[in-house]
């Protein structure tokens, strides 16, 4: 039907033929392929981020009995595109007291680590850039680089709010990293593999989805993932009322846009990982696999946005206590139970 994996395979084979006919080493084909992959994924990320920002504003609006953006285009669909253009045109200042190099590379680190995780997401049957045999471990490792980016941003801005926001972000993200990884280990025990594509293949039928065999694990993952991406019940680092905007106070223009971009790219990313690990990935009847993947992922994104308007923000001590005193023991109990009954 509308499966896309054959299409990409055919394009690759066609390219291989062409390159062997012209006598160019296949290394250049790989290089060209990587360039094309980078462009496709960047385009996909930009589109999904533009859509998610618009959607977030619409969802927020309707949950508060208002409309959200309405003026630009049909129900304001052009709004985020115009915002993006505005951010590129804006002045990009670097504070005089800031550490110039660190200030410059921090948004790039955050941006690159968000992008690199997309390489291992199975968007559909055969639609994965690199199906590494350490897939999920690789994703966990590469997304953790975000912490370094945020800490660099906070420290190098040389602003009280930024420094404190950076510390808080780092403390929060690394605290929630532990229960998050432990909840993923439950799935790894059941599926006996780290490769994302094999994990999806091991949940072909709906009763095999790991959400039914790992309900506690799924909840821990969801809560910890929301904390990882600094979203609302856990958005202490960006608490507007006390820290202005956290680590990105001094950022303006395109560098601010890159942080914002990475934040929403990570929002989709954690939903996509949850879909892959717990909701059967791209498995589903009738519709093409990639459509199923997007339905499930965007549903989870909607749930995370729903959380935003349901739960009030936690205090810092509650936040850290929740991670270390509740989620961590719970994740260990879940892991041991999984081990006993696997």
């Amino acid at each position: 039907m509308l499966e896309l994996d054959q299409l990409f395979k055919n394009i690759y084979l066609w390219g291989e033929n062409l390159f062997t006919q012209w006598g160019i080493p296949l290394f250049w084909l790989e290089l060209l392929g990587m360039l094309i992959v980078a462009v496709i994924i960047l385009a996909f990320m930009s589109l999904s981020v533009l859509f998610l920002v618009w959607w977030e504003r619409k969802v927020s609006g309707h949950m508060q009995s208002r409309f959200g953006p309405m003026r630009t285009g049909w129900h304001g669909w052009l709004q985020t595109i115009i915002d993006a253009i505005k951010l590129i045109l804006k002045e990009d200042t670097t504070p005089g007291t800031a550490d110039k190099i660190g200030f410059l590379i921090a948004p790039i680190i955050v941006f690159v680590s968000a992008f690199m995780a997309y390489i291992c997401i199975p968007f559909g049957k055969g639609l994965i850039v690199k199906d590494l045999n350490i897939g999920i471990l690789y994703i966990l490792a590469i997304t953790t680089f975000t912490v370094i980016g945020l800490l660099t941003a906070g420290w190098c801005s040389n602003n009280k709010f930024s420094v404190l926001g950076g510390f808080r972000s780092a403390a929060q993200i690394i605290s929630y990293e532990v229960p998050l990884t432990l909840s993923i280990l439950g799935v790894v025990i059941l599926s006996q593999t780290l490769s994302m594509q094999s994990i999806v293949n091991s949940q072909k039928h709906i009763w095999e989805w790991y959400i039914f065999r790992q309900p506690i694990g799924f909840l821990i993952y969801l809560v910890a993932a929301i904390a990882e991406i600094n979203r609302v019940p856990f958005d202490i680092p960006e608490a507007e009322q006390e820290l202005v905007a956290g680590f990105n106070v001094e950022y303006s223009g395109i560098k601010f846009a890159m942080f914002f971009f990475a934040e929403f790219a990570n929002l989709f990313l954690v939903s996509a990982i949850a879909t892959t690990l717990f909701l059967g990935g791209w498995n589903g009847p009738l519709l093409p696999s990639w459509i199923w993947f997007f339905i499930k992922s965007f549903f989870l994104v909607f749930v995370i946005m729903w959380f935003k308007w349901t739960f009030p923000r936690l205090r810092v001590d509650q936040l850290m206590g929740f991670a270390w005193k509740f989620l961590l023991p719970l994740a260990f109990i879940n892991l041991i139970l999984t081990g006993l009954f696997a």
Binding site: A38, P107, G253, K255
Partner: peptide
């Protein structure tokens, strides 16, 4: 993957550079 990191870092640096001239 290493190649991709280089490409994307280049892209990120490039977009900041472009914005520097426009903005």
């Amino acid at each position: 993957l290493a190649l991709l990191i280089i490409i994307v870092t280049g892209f990120g640096a490039g977009i900041i550079l472009v914005s520097k001239f426009i903005g």
